[in-house]
């Protein structure tokens, strides 16, 4: 006979094993974390979006090892690798903004190009500078 604890364990193991092998169930699990996040936001009046709350919740469970990445990796991978499909419809909003096809569009393009170049340079130089600084310090500690 199973005790109550052993029974709970075996259910947990079986559901985990099921999840590891069923990508569709994984997709649904990711989805349910989002629903829980949305529900929490509604109930608690949290200023954060539901997706972010769901992300935080999942991260906490992963860190506490209550859930394994194996039971969600493929489901999450599907959402992430095909994310373009989810925002492509929003891009067609350009139809409502005919001004984007004129001078305003050129101005916007200039802002995006120049700003992106600046962001990339600032990030790369900051990271490289810190990396060299920390690297030098580590070498001195070893010497």
């Amino acid at each position: 006979m199973f005790g109550k604890k052993e029974f709970a364990m075996s259910v947990h193991h079986r559901s985990a094993r099921f999840l590891h092998h069923h990508p569709v169930a994984q997709v649904l699990t990711v989805f349910s974390f989002w629903l829980i996040g949305e529900a929490l936001v509604r109930v608690l009046g949290n200023p954060l979006p539901g997706g972010i709350v769901g992300l935080g919740l999942l991260l906490v469970l992963l860190a506490m090892r209550r859930i394994s990445t194996l039971s969600m990796r493929r489901g999450a991978g599907w959402f992430l690798s095909d994310m373009l499909l989810f925002f492509v419809p929003a891009v067609l909003a350009v139809l409502d903004h005919p001004e984007l096809f004129g001078l305003t569009g050129l101005k916007i393009l200039f802002v995006i190009l120049a700003s992106t170049a600046l962001v990339m340079l600032a990030t790369a130089f900051t990271v490289d500078r810190c990396w060299k600084y920390l690297g030098d310090r580590k070498e001195r500690e070893h010497a």
Binding site: V30, F31, F33, W34, G37, E38, P49, G50, G51, I52, G54, L55, G56, L58, L59, L62, T69, M72, R73, G75, A76, G77, F79, L80, M83, L85, F86, F87, V88, P89, A90
Partner: peptide
């Protein structure tokens, strides 16, 4: 389809 960006945000927990 756009609504699915919500669960996609949750999925970012795995790479982190």
């Amino acid at each position: 389809l756009v609504l699915l960006l919500g669960p996609a945000t949750v999925a970012f927990a795995i790479p982190i």
